[in-house]
Design a protein around this nucleic acid. Sequence first.
DNA 1: ACATGCATGATACGGGTGTACCAAGAGAGC
DNA 2: GCTCTCTTGGTACACCCGTATCATGCATGT
Lengths: 201, 201
Amino acid sequence: MTAKVDHEERRRQIAEALLRIADTQGLQSASMRAVATEAGVSLRLVQYYFTTKEGLLLDALARLGTQLQARMEQWIGPARAPREVVTAVLSCILPTDAESRRITRTYAAYYALVLGDPEVLEKQAAQPPVVLEGFLAKQLRAAQQAGEIGPERDVEVVAAGLLAMVNGLGSSVLGGQRTGEQALAVLAYHLDELFGRPEAG
Amino acid sequence: MTAKVDHEERRRQIAEALLRIADTQGLQSASMRAVATEAGVSLRLVQYYFTTKEGLLLDALARLGTQLQARMEQWIGPARAPREVVTAVLSCILPTDAESRRITRTYAAYYALVLGDPEVLEKQAAQPPVVLEGFLAKQLRAAQQAGEIGPERDVEVVAAGLLAMVNGLGSSVLGGQRTGEQALAVLAYHLDELFGRPEAG
DNA sequence: ACATGCATGATACGGGTGTACCAAGAGAGC
DNA sequence: GCTCTCTTGGTACACCCGTATCATGCATGT
């Protein structure tokens, strides 16, 4: 077995070059040659490690998902009260800092690609949202049982609404109609509406 | 003045062919040749009526905006109580029937295009959301003054949140994670939460 | 009736795309 | 040492893209 270089490391290097291009110029600009140049390797290398472009696209998408999950776990930090967990999860999705802007923009690029395609990528890409929604609903239910949320609320529907709202807020920030801080304020307002205002006022 | 054919009609025919392709296959598949074939004309004709591709893209986007506005006005119908107006405006954006699916998908295709571009299209495209948000806020304020909405609510923020939520719900429907009816139910739930449950229960 | 100008067709050009092919180093196992 | 597989480079191919150019019909104004 000849293992002169670390295959996984090379793949990571190339895939992240793809993600960088998708972030800054959109996926339609992420040609094989552009990715090779961005990664500082030859076109042949990209072909060697990812036989086809679709393979590269899928691999990079999986890495993007991993990055987002890592960010969420980091934002949640030491697991605390459900309200704080929910706030952290939703906040860290909004494009407020450089990393979240990057992740959100790149996801948006992929989203457009998935729309007009035979849903080949669907199973790989549609997983995160639904599992995340379930996670949120579970946290909300816990808060509800702790009396922090009124018992008349349907936590499943609330979770769906919140996630959709954050998604839409992210789009508006990327579209330049709102700043990240404003989006965060809108989210905070609705969370206060749900849990009750913290103490001020 | 030689006016053998109706120019505006021809332009409409071609632009709508572009929108049809953007809907079904995404904007990256909407090449000049594809548009010409879809519209049943020669490539030269497309070039003749829209000198450049950017011009075609912009013109079609403007028409899409007009179509959405027409749909909204039709859904609002005879202007009635603010709650019904708000419900109509938000509901008609969700991809529940064929037309709204088409409009939403096409807008999503354009959205991705705008992201990675020099914001040439921004002024033309970013207008609708902000004006719509203002309109919603005004309706909500009227409802608030009529006592249908608690006076403690910040109607501006609520309008922003609702619009973002509908936007996000639309994305999830297009992504196949939810049906249009489910999205509509989530929206109805939150509107009930805001205005109070109608009568049932 | 003829000239003018709008409307349309066919084709060419330069460039970018994904993928395939051929060739050459380079360390591992016998 | 030889060989063989892994790794890398250079390049070619066919195709599609947006745009430009040349040429032709054909209705109309005078």
